[in-house]
Amino acid sequence: MTETAIEFRSVVKRYGDATAVAGIDLSIAKGELVTFLGPSGCGKTTSLRLIAGLELPSEGQVFIAGRDVSRDPASARNVGMVFQSYALFPHMSVLDNVAYGPVIRGTAKAQAQEKAREILDQVGLGGLHQRLPAELSGGQQQRVAVARAIVQQPDVILFDEPLSNVDAKLRRKVREEIRSLQRRFGLTAVYVTHDQEEALAVSDRIVVMDRGRIAQVGTPADLYERPSTPFIADFIGDANLIRGEVAQGYFTAPGLSLPVTGPDGPATLSIRPERITLAPGGPDRVVTATYLGSRMEYMVAAQVGEMLVSRPIFEPRLAAGQDVSLHITHTDVSRVA
């Protein structure tokens, strides 16, 4: 039985008439990195701020480390937060920024600075203690922000879209740094992003949110391979949705018949573009063929409808206008409706 670090119980957050979070139940285990993923306005940032105490819930409770903190302001909770803009104090040196939290919580200044130095060494900013934030590069600023957030050994560390101000080229590196730090310190982390690739790469579990509710929770592989709704299938990666009927354990659509589970009646299946295979000659036709360097993408007019297909670059290439036959295996589809 793993220990629960954070728990949401029927949490609702309203702003006047607008509902940002419409009833969330969720528990996050100690040492886990959970990502809130969703389109803008889905309530993911609000949920993060509810953990931080920067917002208080309109209804329901938030527990951190087993304690009900629903009415506690941010200053009374033990959380660390890395802001989108980093929010480093421009008038304080790097060292003072990192030592700020311990000083506020009553540690003597000298001890706080000692602690800050240790953390700064561990994130690889050993020589930059006396710099001001404006004198650091973007990547360095980000590491200061992380150091500042973890120096007090918080119950949870919160990341609010931490990569949105990082150069596209550097993102992979910074993302891996964050993940390795989180593992090294055994931190419970909650991470907010709207970038599904980032979410897949960094998370233990992903919480997909839509219009203030949780759409699905699962590991990256769960979500990618077994989406539970058309929204998830479409939001994470690309998906082809096939509508048809289920009768006696078989899904049928024009030119397609696959064994599936679940009740009879109208149904929708989702299949990823890279799970579809194409063979030359047949009833279907390539409409467009796009060269993307690492792979080929085809738009195929098939009997079941228009399908997006992605094939490895080393396979024989097909051209637009070519007749093909499209193959789907029943283990590669997931029923989303």
Binding site: A74, S75, G80, A87, Y100, I104, R105, Q152
Partner: peptide, 20 residues
């Protein structure tokens, strides 16, 4: 967010005002 950062590190309103 600079003020929010200060809050998450434990500063109450008065401290946020004074420090940040």
């Amino acid at each position: 967010s600079m003020e929010e950062a200060s809050q998450t590190m434990g500063a109450g309103g008065g401290r946020v005002l004074r420090d940040v």
